[in-house]
Design a protein around this nucleic acid. Structure first.
Length: 262
DNA sequence: CGGGTTTGACCTGCGC
DNA sequence: GCGCAGGTCAAACCCG
């Protein structure tokens, strides 16, 4: 099974920064409450957020996607944009640099898997050729533009596909806890202990171009173990590599972060 | 009352 | 240019 992200990656940030998120598993509120992320805190997205405005009644958002430094105090710019939707369109076209995105597939009965960050749902759409809707979430942390989409696999309804876009501009609590603990060692030991070593145990994740970029373990419905659900902690070991560890010790090694083909 | 969810409408990109 | 599908907004609603 494969996650095929339909969007072309040509626009993606080649920096290799990972979506600040991690895969997930069903909520298990009794354990850790977050996942970690090496938030590469770059100011890439002062993206939207509170100060969005609309043109006209239900018009478009002004100043949206407006960035490059002047992100915030752009009332004027916004007004300008308001005047010409064409310009606006043009701008969008120019700037629409997609955030790097990563998709995770997880066996779970719940759609919205706990990953340690707080998300606000801002939309839901029926997806063509799928009986399951896709939900859209945004990180609730101010100025953090990370988004994620959650949908069920059409082929395997027990599988949840979570796509993260962007990177958190803030650490998650768990990240702080783990910091200094030696992520690499942690990951290695977890991988060994995990037992998810054979391809059969894993779900393949493809990058935008359909190239295999990693694997995820097939978690049993409800997650690993009786209580279900572990949380994925991930650490960017190198700029070109991401490894992940499930909170339950399962191997979730994502040895990737695709470089963008041009 | 504040924060999250639902949902219909709107916007945008893309293929034909 | 048109239509479709994906993505987003925001009012209304819900819930703790």
């Amino acid at each position: 099974m494969v996650v095929q992200l339909s969007d072309s990656r040509r626009d993606a940030d080649a920096d290799g920064q990972m979506a600040g998120a991690a895969a997930v598993t069903p909520a298990n509120s009794s354990v850790l409450s977050s996942s970690s992320c090496e938030a590469g805190a770059d100011a890439n997205d002062d993206d939207e957020e509170p100060s969005r405005r609309r043109c006209g009644k239900k018009g478009r958002i002004e100043g949206e996607e407006e960035q490059e430094g002047e992100g915030e105090a752009d009332d004027d710019a916004a007004d300008r944009n308001c005047k010409s939707s064409k310009e606006n369109k043009k701008r969008r076209g120019e700037k629409k640099a997609r955030e790097p995105r990563v998709a995770f597939m997880t066996k779970s009965e719940v759609d919205h898997l706990e990953d340690g960050y707080r998300w606000r749902k801002y939309g839901q759409k029926a997806v063509k050729n799928s009986t399951y809707p896709r939900s859209y979430y945004r990180c609730t942390t101010a100025r953090c533009g990370v988004k994620k989409r959650v949908e069920r696999s059409q082929q395997d309804p027990s599988t949840v596909i979570t796509t993260y876009e962007g990177q958190h501009t803030h650490p998650s609590p768990i990240d702080l806890l783990r910091r200094g603990g030696g992520a690499a060692a942690l990951m290695r030991s977890a991988a060994v202990a995990g037992g998810f070593r054979r391809p059969d145990d894993l779900l393949k994740i493809d990058d935008y171009a359909g190239t295999p970029i990693g694997f995820l373990p097939l978690l049993p419905p409800g997650g690993i173990g009786a209580g279900g659900g572990g949380r994925l902690l991930h650490h960017r070991a190198r700029s070109s590599q991401l490894a992940a560890v499930d909170a339950y010790g399962g191997m979730l090694e994502l040895d990737f972060i695709p470089s963008i083909p041009r």
